[in-house]
Design a protein around this nucleic acid. Structure first.
Lengths: 201, 201, 201, 201
DNA sequence: AATGAATGAGGTTTCATTCAT
DNA sequence: GATGAATGAAACCTCATTCAT
């Protein structure tokens, strides 16, 4: 999800190294508790160097989010472009969501927890790349409703929230309990639950 | 959910006033950004007085959670005690969840966001009163599965997560977008979605 | 040295109880580290009560010294009044000095160490009751010189310092090492050393 | 005793500047009363800089002692190395002791008074460099006793205490009375008294 | 006289950020 | 561009003292 190497320019490579270090440090210590010195040490650069690549601590957090989620949204869109069935699109999105966090628990920690500090941050994110992601999800929902594949009697915004919330909370409890379990094998039960509901068949 | 007055003893009343002030200040400024002086001023007491009632800043946050959620869990249990239908129990729980946050947006802010700072806090909470709350929810789910009212082919823990996550995320997006809307009127659509799923009828 | 009971008035008795508490607490925790609450608790009174008997923390320390040393100087003077030999007077003084501290290690701690905080305190003491004590000692020295029992070729002030210093430092090292040893049995070697010097016989 | 300049590295020089400042400030205000800001200002550095060189306030006090006394012990050992007569060695030690404090009254104040705060500090010191100094003194005493130059019928530890106590108390009273007097001219009377005792000749 | 809850000034320490090298 | 020593503002908390009861 965040390749450590292959930045085109050396500058880009170092920028990425710092982002990677920030993710790891924020994940281990928490955003407010982590010190910039920790990030610099982890990245193998001097404290002052951080400020040649980012404006400050907050900017670092924002950039983690934008960088990572930007890539992710692109990937998802590429994968679902040629799929017709909205249910399959939803399955792919959820699988990719779980897979990417599964493969990088530190990143998951930052995205799920650290980034949600205070309304201030959260609204920044919601209007930013997270908003884009939610729009992709919402697009799938609306398309499904239009095509009669998803029930149409519930407001699509609410449905989007419920779906995202279910996945998000699921990741949260995985993080807090046993991040060793394989997240991906829960894609099918999750989908079943979301599609069919709690009602017994 | 948190009455400002009517503590039996004067000490209890002041303790509650401080908790109330902390909720408001943490909601407005964020836990890490808020200063103890702010809380003291809001509560109308001297800085030092805070430490006669709480051990420190972290203790204050923990107590908000315990106090509020403790009361809430009691209320929920009282309300569902004499109800037989698990679906109805679930509906009551969700309604109370939404209603209590709806009536106190500052409290909602603290519970949804401020309290989720870093793994450190979160695990404290999960093992504490939040764990109790989730157990109540899980109890309803399991009972429903036993009685054949909820589908039994999905792990009850996963179902609990999905239900809590859907509600939680729903509150979250309400907080981030327009906390003026009336949360309670979404109880029915939420229930319908959870019970019946996305599948068109 | 400081009787806990037998104050003539009840007020005097409580005053003495507080002094006793202060000695014990200052000895255990050190003057600056000890809190007034500790003293109050030890004395079995409320915090505010301390201020009905003493002006404040510093005043408490000063009064320990004055009260205790005042009594001590009276006792010494009574004991040596009818003795003629200056050497014997000196022996008595040293014995009483060692005996009183030996019997009350907490008091010793306060007098030897706590009270010597900063020039400010020390000069207060030197001009106060400690000065009186040193004058008694100096009187003995001068009398001995006059009577030809002590060498007269050294300034009596310097001699006074050396004698007091020897005893004082001796107590100090006892305090820091093994306050279980019996101080009094060192009276004779100390006297021998002071009278005869280091020179071999 | 504590050169303000000539640290080999710039870091060492600044470290020394801070130590010098701490000595002066602690001497003027007393350890507990002095604020770290005072030390920083006196040293001409920012408050935070102190913590790049020392761990905290207590560490600063400890380092004054170790640094200064460490140098002093080295000097003394160098001076007495080639002297045979124990009495002469003792004279040299006492002269250096008095001379170094005489030349730096602020340092004297800190070493004599500030550093003796509460049993806690004192025992730290006694086991540290002060212990080393006392061992040097004790070595001289024991050598003198072995060679028959000092009387052998008194425990060398007690003799060490008496000698150190005499000198120490002498400095103390100089500090408290008139630190303008020249301490060094008292070396001979002190020695005479210690060697020959109070007995008239 | 006695209480003890409340006060609030003040200190140590941390750490994001800067800037001379 | 990179460094990392220095900065200094800012915050949590303690505790001597007060005063209404």
């Amino acid at each position: 999800m965040l390749e450590t190497s292959n930045g085109s320019t050396p500058r880009e490579a170092k920028r990425r190294r710092i982002l990677r270090a920030a993710i790891d440090v924020f994940a281990r210590k928490g955003y407010f508790t982590a010190r910039m010195t920790d990030v610099a040490t982890e990245a193998g650069v001097a404290d002052g160097t951080l400020y040649l690549y980012f404006e400050g601590k907050e900017d670092l957090l924002l950039n983690i989010f934008d960088f990572v989620l930007g890539h992710f949204v692109e990937q998802v869109e590429r994968e679902i472009k040629d799929v017709d069935d909205p249910e399959e699109k939803l399955r792919i999105l959820i699988r990719m969501h779980l897979a990417s966090l599964n493969s990088d628990p530190h990143l998951a920690q930052v995205l799920q927890i650290e980034i949600r500090h205070s309304r201030h941050f959260l609204s920044l994110f919601t209007r930013g790349k997270l908003g884009t992601y939610l729009n992709v999800l919402r697009g799938i929902i609306e398309e499904g409703q239009r095509l009669g594949r998803f029930r149409g009697d519930i407001n699509p915004g609410l449905v989007t929230n419920v779906v995202f919330g279910a996945v998000d909370e699921f990741v949260m409890s995985w993080l807090l309990q046993d991040e060793t379990a394989d997240l991906e094998r829960f894609v099918d039960p999750l989908m079943k639950l979301l599609i069919e509901g709690l009602e017994p068949r």
